[in-house]
Simulated scan of single mutants.
Amino acid sequence: MEKLFTRKEAAKILGISIATLDTARNNGLISYVQYVQNGCVYFTDASLQEYIAKFTHRAKPVEKCATYRKARSAGA
């Protein structure tokens, strides 16, 4: 059986607060396991990896200008 993580463990692995984790769960951004209604909530390693992949973005290259001056507007 796959290891299940508690809310506290999952939040620590993701580097977010428990409140942020609960918000993501309530908004359907992360999948979870709950055996009984109003019972404890658990997360699988696959669901944590899926959440990380969903919110990982590529870095955009910085555009470098030849000078520090801003370009003039067309109306001037």
Rank of each mutant, 00 (worst) to 15 (best):
3 K>S: 02
3 K>Y: 07
3 K>H: 11
3 K>V: 02
5 F>N: 03
6 T>V: 01
6 T>Q: 11
7 R>H: 08
7 R>A: 13
7 R>Y: 06
8 K>T: 06
8 K>W: 01
9 E>D: 10
9 E>V: 01
13 I>K: 11
13 I>L: 11
14 L>G: 07
15 G>I: 06
17 S>M: 00
19 A>I: 05
19 A>W: 04
20 T>G: 10
21 L>H: 08
22 D>T: 12
22 D>S: 12
24 A>E: 13
25 R>D: 09
25 R>P: 02
26 N>E: 12
28 G>Q: 04
29 L>Y: 07
31 S>W: 01
33 V>H: 08
34 Q>L: 01
35 Y>P: 01
35 Y>E: 04
36 V>M: 00
36 V>Y: 03
37 Q>A: 06
38 N>E: 02
39 G>K: 02
40 C>D: 07
40 C>H: 04
40 C>T: 04
41 V>T: 06
44 T>K: 09
45 D>F: 07
47 S>C: 09
47 S>A: 09
50 E>T: 15
51 Y>S: 03
51 Y>E: 03
51 Y>R: 03
51 Y>T: 00
52 I>G: 08
56 T>N: 12
58 R>V: 01
63 E>G: 07
64 K>Y: 11
64 K>D: 01
65 C>D: 09
65 C>E: 14
66 A>Q: 14
66 A>H: 14
67 T>D: 11
68 Y>Q: 11
69 R>F: 14
70 K>M: 14
71 A>I: 13
71 A>V: 14
72 R>N: 15
73 S>D: 14
73 S>I: 13
75 G>R: 13
75 G>M: 10
76 A>I: 12
76 A>H: 13
